[in-house]
Design a binder for these strands. Structure first.
Lengths: 113, 113
DNA sequence: CTATTATTCAACTATTTGGTTGAATAAAGT
DNA sequence: ACTTTATTCAACCAAATAGTTGAATAATAG
């Protein structure tokens, strides 16, 4: 009965798992597709997904032989609340974040030309 | 150069360390005083504090034979920013995301001067 | 100088973690 | 029925983690 925050934070502590979460922002994905860009075995990615699932960060739903993985925002929200409550932190400046996204978009466009 | 977020999240993954952080919200404390309420050795707490310090969550300053520990809000802020932005991002270049976090940090510093 | 206090170091142990490979299971395609 | 595809299982390994104890270091007090 390890505390949920233990599982959430330790799931977030691994860069591969953070990358997987970022990928899942874009769309739900099957295990094999998630594994594709990583230079490690499918079994390793499968384990990472189980960790993410146990932490409640990802939901896995089997349809046929494919297991679809999708983000579950609840757990990440729990971590967010803990941190926010902990230090009564201000939220980041959303304007500068918008600027960042804008620059990202321009960059992507210029790369594709 | 293990990514800072790895260290921050894995530091936060341990309940003893989260408790220590909560204690430090109230006031700066010496190592021995931090250890007092826990049912584990002083050496164990000392190690936890080193983990927190390496993650940048806690600053340790030696005065005489006493090492004073205080919160360093910067690292926790980085984690906060990661989580907050996580849910809003299109898939992006992770490197430029890091740059963004870096800029956020510099901004916060300049504001506090 | 000696004793006490604060903290860390060193060595050890048990458990967990993140990875591997090869086999197993199960569904779909031909 | 046979083959391919998707995923996990099982066994193993190396490294990291979280704890222990006892000794070492270093500053302060008497």
């Amino acid at each position: 009965m390890a505390h949920k925050l233990n599982q959430i934070f330790s799931a977030l502590a691994d860069p591969t798992r953070r990358d997987i979460l970022i990928m899942l922002l874009e769309d739900d994905m099957a295990v094999t597709d998630i594994a594709e860009p990583f230079e490690m075995s499918l079994a390793a990615i499968s384990k990472h997904l189980i960790v993410l699932s146990n932490a409640g960060l990802v939901l896995q739903e089997r349809r046929g032989r494919v297991k679809w993985c999708k983000l579950d925002p609840e757990a990440i929200h729990a971590a967010f609340v803990w941190i926010q409550t902990f230090g009564q932190l201000d939220p980041i400046n959303l304007d500068s974040f918008e600027e960042f996204l804008e620059k990202e978009k321009l960059l992507k466009n210029s790369e594709s030309i």
